[in-house]
Each structure stands twice: as C-alpha cells, then as structure tokens.
Design a protein around this nucleic acid. Structure first.
Length: 260
DNA sequence: ATGGTAGCCGTGCTA
C-alpha cells in the first residue's frame, strides 16, 4: 500500500505533471495540498480515468486539499474541528477498508504562519493545538492512521540546508517545532525520520533565488503514522526528480509503503 | 543580496 503526500501548488496548472506522476509511481492513495481550486473546477475526470476515486475540499484561489484513492472511500470528513469560524480548506479525512481492517488517511495543509508578529502565526499555533486534540482522540481508536501533508514546519536543523536562515520564519519558530514534537510525543511517528536521520533530505525548494539549483531546500512535508501504521512501514521515498520537471511544483511527492 | 518566482484571478494576495 503506497500512500503519498504532495503539495501540488495549483492542481489545474499542474494536471499534466500530476497525471504523469500517477502513471509512473502508481500510488494507492495520494494526499494533495494547495489545489487552489473550488471543488467544481477540480480536474477529476482524467484522474478518475486512471482508476482513482477523488474527494476534495477546495476553496477559491488558495489553500484546498484532496485525497485520490484506488480504494473506495467508506467515509469522508472535511475540516478540522474546534473552530467554527475557520473557513479555510486545509483538512480532509478519508476512511478505507483493507484486508487487515480500517485505514484512516488525512490530507492536511497546515497554515504557513508568516509573518510571525501577526494573527497568521496565532492562527497557525491554534490550528496545531486543534490538530493535537484531534490526533489524541483518533489514537484512542488504535487504528492505522496516516496524517499526511504540508506541515509548514522544519522539525530539526538537519531538515534545512541553512537552518539559521529560517530563524525568523514561522516554519522554524520554537513554538512551531514544539507543536510538531507534541504529535510525536502523543505516539505519532515521523515516517521519513524513523527510516533515516541523515540530514539533507528536503521536500521543498523555493522558486526564487535559484534555491533548487543550489539545493537550498527544507523538509516540511511529512507523513505522521500512528503506532498501528508505523508497525507496517516498509519503505519511504522522496520523489525529488519531479522538481526538475517542466512547470514543477515547489514541493515534491513523499511516499510511504505500508505492508498489507 | 531585504530581491527574487509562481498561481489564481483580475491589476493584489498568498506563499
């Protein structure tokens, strides 16, 4: 079972790349972020033609998440609970039936939070607090759970080419990193980190200032696994080659393979 | 080096 996350940075602008990658990598479940599309405009037909079921939570212009799955959805839930005033499309949960039981997969797009001295950073921290509460409740189910997405968090210095350059950035604030660690402390496993703690594994390279050419990247796209999912983790992969494609997203897909 | 690029949608906002 191959489960992927990819911040696509505009699904309509990226549809050719997405279809090419789906054919090449053949993932079973794909979590997309920043689809930047309303649900009605999401290019679902060519994706469905490749054998995927499609569930979206979009909004106009920015944000928006989706899950593509070769398995049928048993349940779909949109939105992270805990703030009725929050209208940003950043969270969608799908439940699937596998040979070994239920599998829960979330596609999340955590707020960027910049600039730090703004209500945007407070929104980010509030969102993370809600995510922590949601995760604690879901962990009580003792099911395989994959929380996949763009966390907009650099967990450790080794997750940036030049961590010092991010000291004033919301992605690398102590509060952001602490909130990420709280997910780990609840029992969630950072899939990539658990396979290797080698530095220099990045998932995002800015379009600006030749970041890709200089390998000036950061690791901010994460798949967090419940114990029941982590027990089945067999491999991980960062699909770095897609960053060199024509019209690339600034993020690349990250894939985990779970046994059975 | 306080710029630079990209998407969406409309001439600004978000990242």
């Amino acid at each position: 079972m191959k489960i992927a996350t990819w911040n696509i940075n505009g699904v309509k602008a990226r549809i050719d790349n997405l279809l090419h990658w789906l054919r090449e990598a053949e993932p079973d479940i794909v979590c997309l972020q920043e689809i930047k599309s309303v649900d009605e405009q999401f290019p679902r037909e060519p994706i469905e033609s490749l054998g995927y079921h499609v569930e979206t939570s979009g909004q106009k212009g920015f944000n928006g998440v989706a899950i593509l799955s070769k398995l049928r959805f048993d349940e779909v839930t949109r939105g992270l609970p805990g703030n009725d005033a929050d209208e940003q499309a950043r969270f969608i949960e799908g439940v699937f039936s596998t040979k070994t039981g239920a599998l829960r997969v979330v596609s999340l797009y955590l707020p960027n939070g910049n600039p730090v001295a703004s209500e945007k950073f407070a929104y980010k921290l509030g969102w993370m607090e809600r995510l922590e509460g949601w995760t604690r409740a879901r962990l009580a189910l003792e099911e395989p759970l994959v929380l996949a997405g763009d966390y907009n968090i650099i967990p450790e210095p080794a997750d940036a080419k030049n961590a010092d350059a991010w000291l004033d950035d919301a992605l690398y604030q102590p509060e952001s990193r602490q909130a990420f660690r709280r997910l780990t402390n609840l029992g969630m496993t950072d899939a990539l980190r658990s396979v290797s703690d080698q530095p220099g594994v990045y998932t995002f390279w800015d379009y600006q200032a030749g970041a890709w050419q200089k390998n000036n990247g950061i690791r901010i796209d994460h798949l967090m696994l419940s114990p029941e999912a982590a027990d089945r983790l067999s491999s991980t992969s960062v699909q770095k080659h897609t960053r060199a494609w024509e019209k690339p997203s600034d993020h690349v897909p990250v894939v985990v393979e779970l046994a059975a």
